[in-house]
Design a protein around this nucleic acid. Sequence first.
DNA 1: CGACAAATTGATCGCGTTCAACTTAAGTGG
DNA 2: CCACTTAAGTTGAACGCGATCAATTTGTCG
Lengths: 234, 234
Amino acid sequence: MMSKPARDLALSEKAAFFESTRVFERLDPEAALEIARLSFSLTYTKGETIFSPLETGCQFYLVKTGLVKVSIYSTSGFKLTYLLAEHGEPLNLVSPFTCNLRSTAAEALTDVHLLGVRQKDFLPFVLKHPQLIINAISILGKAVDSANLRIIDLIEKRVEARLARVLYTLYSKFGSPVTFTSFELAALTGTTPESILRALGCLREKGLIRSDRGQTHILDPAALIPQEKEMLWL
Amino acid sequence: MMSKPARDLALSEKAAFFESTRVFERLDPEAALEIARLSFSLTYTKGETIFSPLETGCQFYLVKTGLVKVSIYSTSGFKLTYLLAEHGEPLNLVSPFTCNLRSTAAEALTDVHLLGVRQKDFLPFVLKHPQLIINAISILGKAVDSANLRIIDLIEKRVEARLARVLYTLYSKFGSPVTFTSFELAALTGTTPESILRALGCLREKGLIRSDRGQTHILDPAALIPQEKEMLWL
DNA sequence: CGACAAATTGATCGCGTTCAACTTAAGTGG
DNA sequence: CCACTTAAGTTGAACGCGATCAATTTGTCG
């Protein structure tokens, strides 16, 4: 499983892309050019592993095109998906700063084009541009909130309610239909594929969704989620 | 429930304190003096509320002395404790940066002395001192990892194993005996007080702990936690 | 001494995991 | 184009953990 170096994009194109992302939001143009110069393209084909747990190296990855699944693995092999990164989203925000190893793994769900920045280039650059820091901390704050919401849900909500929130989140991010298998939904909801299927059945009977083989059409998004404004961040 | 303004500490004393904390680690001495000048003392008595969910204002709080419990509340009233902050630890790292409201509440578990810094002072200061950012992101990264570990544990571990991890974490941080009631341990473990008592009973039978009325003596810390190096961050 | 909070134990019950069997769809190679 | 293989969907049944409710005991504090 090796990444293939891709033909590099034009610098200006890269710079414009960086400026359009959440992490590099409100970056001044010359800084965008600078980070564009420091970055390099990486491509992976569907199903390829981008990085795996305990892997050395902590470069920064940003998704240019495609969809990447980032998961954490428990020691017993359970997989919890905690991020589905698409255009403009980073795969890893913490390790480029701290260079600590983390037990996360990233897998390409489609053919993927990433931009990478080596830590030795990334860190000095970021330190020169405080707005980036605010952005990064804001994103990490969202991640903490989302994780805490999942914890609360796991404690007091049933599988059906948790799945409804996951579906609502996926619908908000990717639109209808949601194209994930019961295995993937299980890894997002924190349960088993069997329980997902049963819960999907309930939601189907209630007329909230329509589901066929890896495709879930959201018919009534508003009914999926209770009055709460809280959303997951996947 | 109002905070009483305390006699301010000597500037040099405050500055030395800031330098000794994790957030302000490796700060240069004149910067420490500056943040010391921007900070002010707050004291609360045992049981007082320091802030509650949806409260306006997002000043930065650092614990000087005492112990503070920071919890998130679910809409249905369930309380999950996610931080026990003691000497040198911040109560809130995200809101001073983003000024977003978050559904957390802080309560003084003992008489507490805090240092506060208003956001309008905190943010410009931090932006001038990039090392602080690295520190903050490193701490947030730990918080994300800890939350994810709790999620995994909730999914695949039984109450006894989760409690063991909580006890081990409390033991590592505060030493033996651990002085929390079954209600507080339940809010940390994500279960009910009854289940905590039963799990404590099991651990007692195994000879790993000895527990009396709000005091849990850890007899065999190493046996509490399996081979994993992962720890919670409370 | 009385009131209150926490600890303890028992009994019940429901959700969700687990295991198993079977069906259905998709992809592959002859 | 069909036979074969594989992966996902589907459903059923059983079991076990943990929540819940209730009752009792034990400290602690005013």
